[in-house]
Nucleic acid binder design. Structure first.
Lengths: 354, 354
DNA sequence: GCTAATCTCTGAATCGATACAGACTGAATC
DNA sequence: GATTCAGTCTGTATCGATTCAGAGATTAGC
């Protein structure tokens, strides 16, 4: 059994408080005594105050939770999420705070329990899927949190860092529309819960469940509505997951159809890269060319020549952590909207003549 | 102030123990009473047992620490580390355990303190640099740990998962030697503490401080010794960090020298990719060709056509976490050596005729 | 109808520290 | 010589739960 604070106190012949002070408030005792205490502690093999007991008494833990509303391994597979984590990590490091990655069991009851049981001082909620239940639990615990999406139901004191998904999506769609494309497919992940991979019909964008997806699809639709292509004329394609493979799988049969799309607008870069993979595998090879766009501008996008919308991933993580660790006095400053930029590369071009 | 267990107990008119049981041991009370307690808790806004208090009493936390003996952000920048984390994360998820990423301040005293203060049940130590001090602190705390390198001073009960660095390095070097290369540069990160980027002279491999680096350099040297090129004939180049940019910087002046190396063996893929970057920037372009090899086989290596040694990154993380969370009964099973494989791609070729 | 077994629930002890008010000491001030 | 003050150290209350032996109340067995 490891010795406790008390054991050290007994060994030196001082009170427990004094030993505690030797560690946490060196100015409260003489240097000489402190030295004796620390020596005795070393002798006894006392490893310093127990972190858990300390947290309990002090009322804070010294770590923040990062919540991914999907598999934890997803967080490391998605390059955007990795950059986000890097941002959070950098900020946490500067604050001397640890990051707790909490895996969420698939069942909601247990997932709630996991959030309830996390020993943290607050949460960064990475909004990869529906996060409202998590926000609810966190609020019940009375812990501060920051989300990475602009929430409709955000209270005045709620903090978030996001982008204008709709405007950003619109910009890339306008670029594609400007190139003359009119037969267009929109590819997104988890449009409806449990929808299979492949084409999908929705009476309107409002049916898409996840706010981020909804925002992006709305932006795409906006741009095409402006050139006279309305929602019903667009082909909506669902992907079963946000990964390269899922993207490729979703569009697998698409180009063999009677009048295939001349452009595919994907809701994320990884999906778009999957589309490029699928196109490369086509019997016809790269002919006729199909324009493809992504979203996020992850590092891989540049190498693949993917036209996309850039959003500052690491910055998003950094700001999320900072809003959490160092809340602005002014509530309005807790609502951060990051800039986005259209990045045109080789994956988009004019409509080929048929 | 959030209500406590006691508050709920008072509200329902039962003892604190009973409320505790309602949460943690449902079989210890009648379903009816449990229902009443949970209802009352909801009414009062009681968010469930305080995780910290629970950990203190129970004696365990439910999370494992992952230690990077360098900046935390490094962990997200190095693709190998990211895959490793993914492996750890997957295993943690399966065990219902959280992962705590602990940032280490640059100063050792404070870094030790950070390890002492981490509320975890054990550590995965990712050996990116010297980790012996961390192992020492962890051992003092009496916590279990797993390292990702074969440690010379490993006790019988110490667990680790690693590769045979020397043999793996030797295999790729032998491939290069077999192609006829004799003027060769070896590129590694942090060969000596505080050494600047660029060529460096070492009386022998033993001087390299970090065991992993030492192992790889030794393997490289082995293969060349066999074809009559000894240590003094090899150009050792130091990189200031394990990143693409650091790799490029380290070899910047190398190819403008009188008799430049015809091959560069790098200690990691990211360094090797940096070398390729530097070569692409050369005035002469890609002529004469220089063979380049990496180490790890990260996802980017395939795209770049980099010859390298594959080691299973995610597997390494998974096994590390499993050794920690689910220690084998047999101590010998706690020492895992993973297989490696030489992967030959386009970045290596025969020596060009001069 | 009586003992034994089973269910429920309680009370006190405990996990390992920190906070804070106050006791004591010796030196400085007037 | 009394007063004040700063510097050290101690004692007690507290953080918020879990554990476990055992008290009562029920049910079962015969």
């Amino acid at each position: 059994m490891k010795p406790t604070l008390q054991a050290v106190a007994d060994a030196v012949g001082v009170s427990r408080s004094t030993v505690s002070n030797a560690y946490s408030r060196p100015d409260q005792l003489s240097a000489a005594l402190r030295g004796r205490i620390l020596d005795a502690a070393r002798q006894l093999g006392y490893p310093g105050p127990n972190p858990t007991a300390r947290s309990l008494r002090r009322g804070f833990v010294g770590s923040i939770g990062v919540l991914f509303t999907s598999h934890l391994s997803y967080a490391f597979t998605d390059p955007f999420a990795v950059r986000f984590l890097a941002g959070v990590g950098g900020a946490a490091e500067r604050h001397g705070t640890s990051m707790l990655l909490v895996p969420l069991p698939p069942a909601q009851t247990e997932a709630r329990r996991a959030v309830e049981n996390a020993a943290v001082d607050g949460f960064c909620v990475y909004c990869a899927a529906d996060e409202s239940w998590a926000v609810e639990v966190i609020r019940e615990r009375g812990l501060p949190f920051v989300t990475t999406a602009v929430r409709d139901d955000a209270g005045a004191d709620d903090r978030f860092v996001g982008i204008d998904e709709r405007a950003a999506a619109r910009s890339v769609a306008a670029h594609v529309a400007g190139l003359g494309h009119r037969r267009v497919a929109l590819l997104a992940d988890a449009v409806l819960p449990d929808a299979p991979a492949g084409p999908l019909t929705l009476s309107g964008v409002h049916e898409a469940v996840h706010p981020t997806t909804r925002g992006r699809l709305t932006g795409f639709a906006d741009a095409f509505a402006e050139v006279g292509v309305d929602w019903a004329d667009l082909t909506l394609v669902n992907a079963a997951g946000n990964s390269r493979a899922a993207g490729a799988e979703a569009v697998a049969g698409l180009f063999a159809r009677p009048s295939p799309p001349t452009a595919v607008l994907a809701g994320s870069d990884v999906l778009a890269l999957g589309v490029l993979d699928a196109l490369a595998q086509r019997p016809g090879g790269t002919n006729p060319p199909v324009s493809v766009t992504g979203f996020d501008d992850v590092p891989e996008a540049a190498a693949a020549g993917l036209t996309t919308v850039r959003q500052p991933a690491e910055e998003k993580g950094r700001i999320a952590a900072e809003l959490l660790l160092d809340p602005p006095a002014d509530a309005a400053a807790g609502h951060v909207l990051l800039p986005t930029a259209l990045v045109v590369r080789e994956s988009t071009g004019p409509v080929p003549r048929s």
